[in-house]
Amino acid sequence: MFLSCENLTLKYSHNGLPVLDNLCFEITTPGLHALFGHSGAGKTSLARLLTGELPVSDKFSSGAIKIRNMKTLLYSYNTERLPGWSAISHHLDKITPASRKTQKDDLITLFGLEPYMDQPFNRLSLGQKNRINLVRYLVQDFDLLVMDESLANVDERMREKIILNIKTLYPDRLLLYISHNLIEVAKFCDQIIVLRAVTRQPQCIVVQGQNHRGYQPTAQLPERTMLELMNAA
């Protein structure tokens, strides 16, 4: 499993302003990694380039993205919705491969979503919507999943539980987590790719996270990593 960016450059198509400039980094191990940075730093654009939703070589972008041993690359984000014409359980049943029905049920239980399965999507809170959306991506056949603010509006304890469970359930997949939560990123992620303003070089710095794997109620806050992240950003 290998993902690398070499001299990746991207300009906005609507105004030609650069958003990524000469970006270089690589991820060589599976697990939960993070994309971190200020709003507008280019995290979403980078994620969409990595998953092929934006073309890498056209008049607005250049450089190279190298991907080895990964076929299915998915990008999920926090404002996605399910269609409103039937209950959530119906939609999830339709998009879950037969071999993953049990996994889907387990995730629904782990994510605390059982009571909402018979409701239409638009009646849920934002946090519940985001958890439902994440479940449907996690039951797909994927090698890389980008989770762009996928746990936004979910309360702290539930986020922690979800992240730890995802890490346990998908140790062989590459999960790229985009979040503005400094503590969470520092504590649970392995490599943290910090995207800085496009005017700064290098635009991206890789910080080693604490990569906690289990629930540790007495664990110290990862102050050192947090400081590194704040300095880098």
Partner: peptide, 8 residues
């Protein structure tokens, strides 16, 4: 926001 999942 709805079509993205089904498309990808």
């Amino acid at each position: 926001d709805i079509e993205h999942f089904y498309r990808c």
